[in-house]
Design a binder for these strands. Sequence first.
DNA 1: GATGAATGAGCTTTCATTCAT
DNA 2: AATGAATGAAAGCTCATTCAT
Lengths: 198, 198, 198, 198
Amino acid sequence: MARVTKQERKQGIITAALQLFSERGFYVTTIPDIAQKVGMSVGNFYNYFTSKDILAKELILYISEYLGDNIRQINEKDISTQEKIHAIVSMYFAMAEEKPEMIEYFLRVYLSNREVFGDGCEGMICVSPFVTEMMIFFDDGVAKGDLHNQDFFSAFGLFMGYLGGMVFLFGEKILPEPLENYKDSISQNIYNALKTRN
Amino acid sequence: MARVTKQERKQGIITAALQLFSERGFYVTTIPDIAQKVGMSVGNFYNYFTSKDILAKELILYISEYLGDNIRQINEKDISTQEKIHAIVSMYFAMAEEKPEMIEYFLRVYLSNREVFGDGCEGMICVSPFVTEMMIFFDDGVAKGDLHNQDFFSAFGLFMGYLGGMVFLFGEKILPEPLENYKDSISQNIYNALKTRN
Amino acid sequence: MARVTKQERKQGIITAALQLFSERGFYVTTIPDIAQKVGMSVGNFYNYFTSKDILAKELILYISEYLGDNIRQINEKDISTQEKIHAIVSMYFAMAEEKPEMIEYFLRVYLSNREVFGDGCEGMICVSPFVTEMMIFFDDGVAKGDLHNQDFFSAFGLFMGYLGGMVFLFGEKILPEPLENYKDSISQNIYNALKTRN
Amino acid sequence: MARVTKQERKQGIITAALQLFSERGFYVTTIPDIAQKVGMSVGNFYNYFTSKDILAKELILYISEYLGDNIRQINEKDISTQEKIHAIVSMYFAMAEEKPEMIEYFLRVYLSNREVFGDGCEGMICVSPFVTEMMIFFDDGVAKGDLHNQDFFSAFGLFMGYLGGMVFLFGEKILPEPLENYKDSISQNIYNALKTRN
DNA sequence: GATGAATGAGCTTTCATTCAT
DNA sequence: AATGAATGAAAGCTCATTCAT
């Protein structure tokens, strides 16, 4: 009877790698570092992920699916578009506080190391679960007449750029207050920027 | 009689390094790569910058000053806050098109490699010329009654996160139209988000 | 009730290993490669051969016995020495075409990797079944007055070096014609070289 | 004033590598082994040869040119074809005794590790200086009416296979007498095999 | 016998940095 | 100031072999 299944082992690597990559950076984190953190030999690591790059790509997919799931749940709720914006912002900030490694990985590893994700993650392939849900959110809002019908990417850039910017400032510890306290004003800012214009 | 002054030599390195770091990434670019691009020996490189990290820090300061200068010129203009927003967005996008290495360095190298900039660039030290001007812009807008008086960082996060997000999408070549075409809608979005609320 | 006997299992490994070693080389072939080709687990492989080196040594013995058997059959025939030469050359070339892995293993693995066969295969220990038959062939020819009585190894070197050289050229695909077409001229050359001199 | 030129350094590596590869085998010899033998750091080794494979290829070219030069000198002599055969055999055996690493490298490293020489040394590219001279020798002999006009490769396979076989037996220390003692009989055998037939 | 996850030493290669010239 | 050969630590990755099940 195996104490630890292969899938659990893989999950253990994912958790450890996510933490190390987001804290120290992709290049500064070594495979021995990760293996040690999981309590596994270097050689065995390669039974689960065939290269460091492959691991990096699986990680971003993992995060993208996690984010996508959360947004889908919000999309499915029967609430106003303005409330959805608030819910997404809240979820994102909660994640940044509780599972900072995910958002940090997204911002600092994925967005910045083209050379790592170039092959196999071109365009938005590896983040499509997440982007797709954002598209749905936006299209719904436009359909309901709540959002101004503009180019999706402009809206997307605003939304994610804004949140990313704030989390970045938070990570740098230069925000004077906890992230939570910004939820309302930021949601309001986003809504003001995207809402139907008269 | 030196044909090329020390300062010019240094500038040559800055230009070359900026390009390589932003195109290939900090860790993938080697000192020999940079030296070769400048047409200089590896050993001589170290007469100008005592380490790779020092070079990286001087680069971000250089960019921050460049950006700060441009924003200051806008701040000094006698135009409305809404026009200033438009001017900053235009300037930023123009830079992203004409000197992409600067913005890319900012987004992909500086923002993502804490381990490199940690020592000596804590907080916003190395980008203060730029941040300071943004503060001035914001305070002026509030003073004039054009902008809603909120936490500076929330406004800053919106502004720079948004622009950064758009330039990132542009860099990934997933924007359906040239950056220029987004100038108006984005300026409008930002203004809507930040303007005085009634 | 085992469907497959231990001996058959072993033979399966021999066949697979022979093919892989001769095609890819000894060092490039891994135990997992071999196990997979046989359809067996890595761990189980070690129940049949206690190490990669041991396997290599058993393989050369296997080939040597196979070659020896074939030459013995020719030696036992009641034909002229010249016809025997022709028969040996034909057999060797037929093997090179039909079971190239054997000859290739002999030429490329056994002859070249002293460090592998050093311990346990010193001198000609592991190829003695084959060398012995060649000695018998030669002694018979001398006894019958057909062959010039010279040092055995000089004759052996000629015979096997020549054939090995041709098969090597064949393996490199630089022979303009099929191996078969060379049988006659080569047999003739060998006979001319070894026959009684007047 | 440099004590050691770059070319001399490169030659030092060639000499050391040749010895180690031929004695221990290509895969068993490591770059640290070679570097240590030259008295150089591992990193510096890569300033001279960009990879282990590249080194292997340069070595075979080096040997091929050496062999080719020696045969050319014989080809240019005004002696009979039979004497040329004797001269080539003598030269080859002398090399095998005095610079065994060259012949051994040829026989044990080059001829056996297709996977190493595959790319860039296809066919006979990396040994053409040597093969070309053998072609000249053979064509001259045929032109003079001394050699039987047969397929070049059959003659080449005989000549080189024979010599290779003898040197191999010598290397295995199973020849009862020194190589030298075989010169005459082997030259005679080769001549008998290749000479014009009546 | 059979499995395959696990080990860990060791390999090739890279690169920031130094230093004799 | 300038050169570039030299260093050496460390990285990613492989693989023969073991062993708990």
